[in-house]
Simulated assay, not measured.
Amino acid sequence: MTTSPRPAAATARGAALRRKHRREAYRTLAFLSPWLIGFGFFFAYPLISTVYFSFMKYDGFTAPVFTGLKNWDYVFNHYPFFWQGLGNTLWLVVVMVALRVVFGLGIGLLITKVKSGAGFFRTAFYLPYLAPPVAATIAFAFLLNPGTGPVNHALAQLGLPQPGWFNDPSWSKPALTMLALWGIGDLMVIFLAALLDVPQEQYEAAELDGAGAFKKFRFVTVPHIAPIVVFAVVTGVIQTMQYYTQAIVAGKVASGVIGGSGQQFEPGYPRGSTWTLPQMVYNLGFQRFDTGSACVVALILFAISMAFTSLLLRRRAGFVTGED
């Protein structure tokens, strides 16, 4: 009785197919390896370490000691700046991001309507974005100085009230928002590129149907640029949740502490109105050497950023009506 060659041939084909799939898997892993290495070293490992140290008493010098939820309890119930800093950060996320998107889109729309000199206006609005954050903040602090600044001097000449700006807790965050709006060039360029990509024939068709300027913006412009708006809002939220340099420099300059050792500085000057969560991470981790509590604030910052981003991406279908 002879053995049929078919089972042997099928087995050989199956083995060859498995070897092919294995080679493809190795090839895919080879192409993905730079990303996988970067993800592991620069995201996964730091995140796992942050979670680990949030349950430890660790000062960066001695061995960490497990303390359970004590760091979390300290941050939520005993760290005096946490809730005020959280409120300041959320205020900046809601107000600053919204105004930056509106102003960036508005300036982009205005430049598309300019008949001549559009290149000059693009450059003029983009240049402030290139200014170093520290230098720009120092300049704004001197311009908005309540006693000697030219802004308040001009307001006085017009008979208008002169705010305290960075020296007034009620005006410090609006002053930081003005600084952010001054450097609106990055969003202006992004929105300008999206606006110039809207098909002109759709504007012409809408005009033939009797649509005015508002309806053309609502039913033609918005559907085409909505993905860019989502991108601007998401990246704006992430950047604002990391807001550190401008807030701390403005507080130092307004309080008279510009540099030098031995000078006393009230964090979040004036009266904690410029405290942000990233400042707390630095204060706890590098000034108080309380790495565990700093990791708790970092995780809260990460969780809020993820929550905002997830909410925006989940709801994007409500206002992204065009094709992605």
Rank of each mutant, 00 (worst) to 15 (best):
S172K: 05
S172R: 06
K173C: 01
K173E: 05
P174A: 10
P174Y: 12
P174V: 10
A175G: 07
A175Y: 03
A175D: 06
L176E: 04
L176H: 06
L176K: 02
M178C: 11
L181K: 07
W182M: 13
W182P: 07
I184R: 09
I184E: 06
G185F: 07
D186A: 13
D186I: 06
D186F: 14
L187D: 08
M188E: 05
I190Y: 13
F191S: 01
F191G: 03
L192I: 13
A193W: 14
A193Q: 11
A193N: 08
A194W: 05
A194F: 04
L195M: 02
L195A: 00
L195I: 05
L195E: 01
L196D: 12
V198H: 09
V198R: 10
P199I: 08
Q200S: 13
E201P: 00
E201L: 01
Q202P: 00
Y203R: 09
Y203F: 14
A205K: 12
A205E: 07
A206G: 02
A206I: 03
L208I: 12
L208V: 12
L208H: 09
L208Q: 09
D209C: 00
D209I: 00
D209F: 07
G210M: 06
G212A: 12
G212S: 05
A213V: 12
F214R: 09
K215I: 13
K215M: 11
K216T: 11
F217I: 11
F219W: 12
F219D: 10
F219H: 12
V220P: 03
T221M: 00
V222P: 01
P223T: 02
H224V: 11
H224W: 13
A226Q: 07
P227E: 05
I228H: 11
I228V: 15
V229G: 06
V230D: 11
V230R: 15
F231P: 12
V233E: 02
V234W: 10
T235H: 14
G236A: 01
V237G: 01
V237E: 03
I238A: 13
Q239F: 15
T240C: 07
T240P: 02
M241D: 07
Y243R: 05
Y243F: 11
Y243Q: 09
Y244D: 09
Y244F: 15
T245S: 05
T245M: 12
A247C: 03
A250S: 10
K252Y: 14
V253L: 03
A254T: 08
A254F: 02
A254G: 04
S255P: 00
S255H: 10
V257A: 07
I258G: 06
I258K: 14
I258P: 05
G259S: 15
G259N: 14
G260D: 08
G262N: 04
Q264G: 14
F265E: 09
F265H: 14
E266V: 14
Y269N: 14
Y269V: 12
P270L: 08
G272Q: 03
S273T: 07
S273V: 09
T274C: 05
W275T: 05
W275Y: 11
W275C: 01
T276V: 06
T276Y: 08
L277A: 10
L277W: 15
P278I: 04
M280V: 09
M280K: 10
M280H: 15
Y282T: 12
N283M: 12
L284Q: 06
L284D: 02
G285I: 05
R288L: 14
F289T: 11
F289R: 13
T291E: 13
T291R: 15
G292W: 10
G292A: 10
S293P: 01
A294N: 09
A294V: 09
C295Q: 10
C295S: 13
C295N: 14
